[in-house]
Design a protein around this nucleic acid. Structure first.
Lengths: 250, 250
DNA sequence: GTAGGGGTTGCCGTAACGTCAACTTCAAAC
DNA sequence: GTTTGAAGTTGACGTTACGGCAACCCCTAC
């Protein structure tokens, strides 16, 4: 049984335009195209569309969606999703910081009461052009590396999948034994942490230390890492700081 | 004293291309353009650029940045920022939901262990095409209305600025007196809440109830509303639910 | 014969620039 | 006087995931 484009559109909730777009970029090719150019879809394409929409709704880009579906192993899928989750958490954090900044900006304006037009931004005039120092290590680097997910080897995919978990578990054990963060055993685990992180982006020394602090500051990361134990994340941060100072380039 | 485009770029941290872009869209016009086409900026433009970058870094679109700078009153600026903050909170919430969904998807895949390619997405096959029911009331509506910020009257801007705060304070007082959420006094306040919300988007009945629940579920909203008192937000939700059921169209 | 309800293929527009390409201008160095 | 290099200019295309035209085709019911 073959479905027309409008039927598929109605059933799936996307527009016909979207289906044509997916055809154009090769993401979803119809089962057959009639001589008059009309597209007809079969069961198989419906299933594929379903997968596409699922992944798309998780926030993945169509590029990545195509990759994932092409590979088709749940292995790779998990790695990609884990990666994607990292990105979502970071993005959330960025927004949280923005909220705080907006908040303090509003406060500043309020305190100034009815400011004269010229002075609206007075609160910021005393630190002009500090833009150069704006901390940018986060988003772009991540964002750029986000697209290179394709080149992963099987080993790397495995690392991306289970890497953080193994590090966290290892750290928890060492911490329970009272091992200092400067100990080699801890630092070796952090080395692994750094390698996993490097799958996604390449942190500089300051960036890596910032990442550790971020884990501590943001409760979304904290929940994810501590698994109940709130102090593990601080242990992790301290160990990361030591690692960064000793092993990473400034 | 006049600065060349490269000097301004270096001082401000943006690229020359960005400055040309801002010129092209009329956001930042150079003090003068030499006969050979070169752009020269003066103190005034530097100050304006500073304002632009400040607002841009808060996450505002250039459209909105232009609007804000044009109006120049701290009144309007606060209204815009308050609006923007709402948007940021919503976006954050959306990402948080995505994280949860990604998480459970990963769980599903893990439980399935090494699935055969055909069955990777099996977990979702029993609810095919539920896409039609996808809850979308949030983002697009907000997103669309986001751009109509320009048409605000002075009165509306005032409402956007102080509306929520007044409602929350009023509610806190009524709640302290033990007033039931069905009481007219409470419902009148909720009416105001609804009107303020309508400045940003127009919620349907279900959307409005969803918004109330969201306030409760998400601690970022909760902190913002309760101001310490965690139960106020539940009071608000209940009152919103009553309001929605009685006054809003399904 | 025609109106209507599908379908098709272009092509432009979106936000905020990055990234060439092809060219001009200016001042210092030879 | 000329070369060279740095810095400037104006296009124009690319990015994401489509939406929204326009112009045209195909089939069926009246």
């Amino acid at each position: 049984m073959a479905w027309s484009i409008a039927e598929v559109a109605r059933a799936s909730g996307v527009t016909a335009r979207t289906l044509r777009h997916y055809h154009a970029i090769g993401l979803l090719v119809p089962a057959r195209t009639a001589p008059n150019g009309r597209r007809y879809y079969e069961q198989e394409q419906l299933l594929r569309l379903q997968q596409i929409l699922l992944l798309r709704d998780l926030g993945l880009s169509l590029d990545v969606v195509a990759e994932v579906i092409a590979h088709r192993s749940s292995h790779d899928t998990i790695a990609v999703l884990a990666r994607h989750k990292e990105w979502l958490l970071r993005e959330q954090l960025r927004l949280a910081q923005l909220v705080r900044t907006v908040d303090s900006t509003i406060e500043n304006l309020r305190k100034g009461g009815e400011m004269s037009p010229e002075k609206v931004f007075e609160g910021f005039e005393h630190n002009p052009y500090e833009a150069e120092a704006r901390e940018r290590w986060g988003d772009e680097a991540v964002d750029a590396s986000y697209r290179r997910i394709q080149g992963w080897s099987e080993e790397e995919a495995e690392k991306a999948r289970t890497g953080y978990t193994r590090v966290h578990e290892g750290l928890a054990a060492l911490k329970a034994e009272g091992t200092a963060v400067t100990e080699l055993s801890v630092q070796e685990l952090i080395q692994q942490h750094y390698e996993v992180t490097s799958l996604f982006w390449t942190p500089t020394r300051e960036a890596y230390k910032g990442l550790g602090q971020m884990y501590v500051d943001d409760e979304r990361f904290r929940q994810n890492i501590g698994d109940g134990d709130d102090s593990l994340v601080e242990y992790l941060r301290d160990a990361m700081t030591v690692y960064a100072d000793n092993r990473l380039d400034a």
